Amino acid sequence: MKTIAILYIGRHPEITETVVRLLNTNENWVGIGTVNDEEAKAIFCKKEFSIVLLGSGIQYESETNLCSFFKKQNPNCIIVQHYGGGSGLLKSEILLALEDIK
């Protein structure tokens, strides 16, 4: 199976760290996270991501700017809102996004 690269953007360092750790427990996923919009854009340009997860707390203007940037760089990238809820919800969100990719 192809490895799925997932970029997580949050606003809380501890939550970002936890989400990335949970992503990387799946052998088919590679998760990278940041709490900074400009860093997220730079990371996105260096690696081909299939999914971008947007965590809670991102202001509307930042979210709009990020989504526009990601879609311009890679129109096939799936952008998913992630509001928390534990590893089960995270996995479900990603599996649903992967269905959209197929």
Results as ranks from 00 to 15, higher is better:
27 E>I: 09
100 D>N: 10
73 Q>K: 12
49 F>K: 10
31 G>T: 03
16 T>I: 00
44 F>P: 10
37 D>V: 13
45 C>Q: 15
34 T>G: 04
33 G>F: 02
22 L>E: 11
98 L>T: 02
70 F>I: 09
30 V>T: 04
78 I>Y: 04
40 A>D: 13
94 I>L: 02
11 R>F: 00
50 S>T: 11
94 I>P: 03
9 I>R: 07
72 K>N: 11
21 R>A: 10
8 Y>K: 01
4 I>Q: 07
44 F>N: 09
55 G>P: 10
33 G>C: 04
14 E>I: 02
7 L>V: 00
40 A>G: 13
25 T>Y: 07
102 K>T: 11
20 V>W: 01
67 C>I: 12
61 E>W: 13
37 D>K: 10
8 Y>R: 01
52 V>E: 06
61 E>M: 15
24 N>Y: 07
83 Y>W: 11
50 S>I: 04
8 Y>C: 06
67 C>L: 10
101 I>E: 00
46 K>C: 05
7 L>D: 04
81 Q>M: 08
32 I>G: 00
15 I>T: 03
21 R>W: 07
70 F>V: 13
85 G>L: 11
17 E>W: 02
37 D>E: 13
51 I>N: 03
42 A>I: 15
42 A>Q: 15
98 L>C: 10
98 L>M: 14
80 V>F: 10
45 C>P: 05
94 I>K: 03
66 L>E: 08
87 S>N: 05
78 I>C: 07
65 N>Q: 14
85 G>M: 12
31 G>L: 04
97 A>F: 07
47 K>Y: 10
45 C>R: 15
26 N>A: 04
18 T>D: 03
51 I>S: 05
33 G>L: 06
56 S>H: 14
82 H>Y: 15
28 N>F: 07
19 V>Q: 02
5 A>T: 05
85 G>I: 09
75 P>Y: 13
2 K>D: 15
92 S>D: 02
85 G>W: 09
74 N>I: 11
62 S>V: 08
96 L>R: 08
80 V>P: 10
29 W>S: 01
52 V>T: 06
3 T>G: 05
1 M>S: 14
32 I>D: 01
15 I>D: 02
28 N>H: 08
